[in-house]
């Protein structure tokens, strides 16, 4: 069953993340993918995450598919104009890639090529609309396609943003433009997530709650200061601080968060950020 079919059937789905390497040595990426195979329903392939130049998500999604996993092809609007984005969507379809996650993308100023020209010709909303257009047989120029693709398109949302209302307004626009599922930014506060889920109930769209695996108290503090929409409560930071075995504690916290939020949403999206080998242990502890 595909991700689309699993979500439609009401199954609680699990997705994780694989980041392609900077360079052409794909051994570690393959090893991580193998670890996740048979444990997750799909893997997201990040699109030059944090604006750091590396193998792209299209090639990454193609590889992961060859290795027997279902890819979610992440697409940001940072590096490609509307021609390149639409062309890559057609490329993805002919490679058998069905799931696309539409993102704005980090600014180039955050990455390792800060002098690059940022593109942002489309935004996440108009990219979703472009996909819908291609599915209906027309490109953004209004020209007819010889054979139209079909995608399962998703988007992201930040449930712990402050203020929350602009995020919800944009989420509504994404649904209107064609988003069929959401994977969220990391959540560490189940009560806040519950409030968020209540306020987007009317959208009737599956939401996969985002979990970022904690490595240390320092990492949590760093995210609190530097990463938008992420807030790790003091109690969790203290828990990490006091723990002797940081890896085991991070796994325990992730599993606990999943257990607490499982009944509020339709799935979980685990972002292990380089610690993919710990994902199976999180799933074991969460009983998934």
């Amino acid at each position: 069953m595909s991700l689309r079919e699993k979500l439609a059937s009401g199954k609680f789905v699990v997705t994780a993340e694989v980041g392609p390497p900077k360079g052409v040595d794909i051994e570690e990426m393959k090893k991580n993918a193998e670890l996740l195979k048979d444990r997750v329903d799909a893997v997201n392939i990040t699109d030059q995450q944090s604006s750091v130049m590396r193998i792209g998500s299209l090639a990454g999604a193609h590889l992961v598919k060859q290795w027997g996993l279902e890819p979610v092809f992440q697409m940001t609007c940072r590096d490609r104009n509307r021609l390149a984005l639409q062309s890559d969507l057609l490329n993805a379809y002919v490679m058998g890639i069905e799931n696309v996650l539409c993102l704005t993308g980090d600014h180039v100023a955050l990455g390792d090529h800060p002098d690059a020209k940022p593109v942002f010709d489309l935004d996440s909303v108009s990219l979703l609309a472009a996909i819908k257009g291609l599915e209906q047989g027309r490109d953004l120029g209004g020209k007819e396609l010889a054979g139209s693709p079909r995608f399962f398109s998703g988007a992201s949302v930040t449930p712990c943003a402050e203020p929350l209302e602009p995020q919800i307004i944009k989420m509504e626009k994404k649904v209107k433009a064609g988003a069929q599922f959401f994977q969220t930014q990391a959540v560490y506060e189940p009560r806040q997530f519950e409030t968020f889920m209540q306020s987007v109930k009317h959208l009737n769209v599956p939401v996969l709650v985002g979990i970022v695996l904690l490595r240390s108290a320092a990492m949590a503090r760093f995210m609190n200061t530097n990463v938008a929409g992420i807030f790790v409560p003091d109690a969790l930071i203290e828990e990490m601080d006091k723990a002797e075995k940081k890896a085991a504690k991070g796994i325990e916290i992730a599993a606990r968060l999943i257990t607490e939020m499982k009944d509020m949403c339709q799935g979980v999206h685990i972002m292990a950020i380089g610690m993919e080998d710990r994902v199976p242990a999180i799933l074991d502890a969460a009983g998934l």
């Binding site: 993308g105 602009p166 995020q167 944009k170 938008a228």
Partner: peptide
């Protein structure tokens, strides 16, 4: 079409 997720 609205904010990205990058503002803090």
């Amino acid at each position: 079409n609205g904010p990205c997720g990058g503002a803090k």
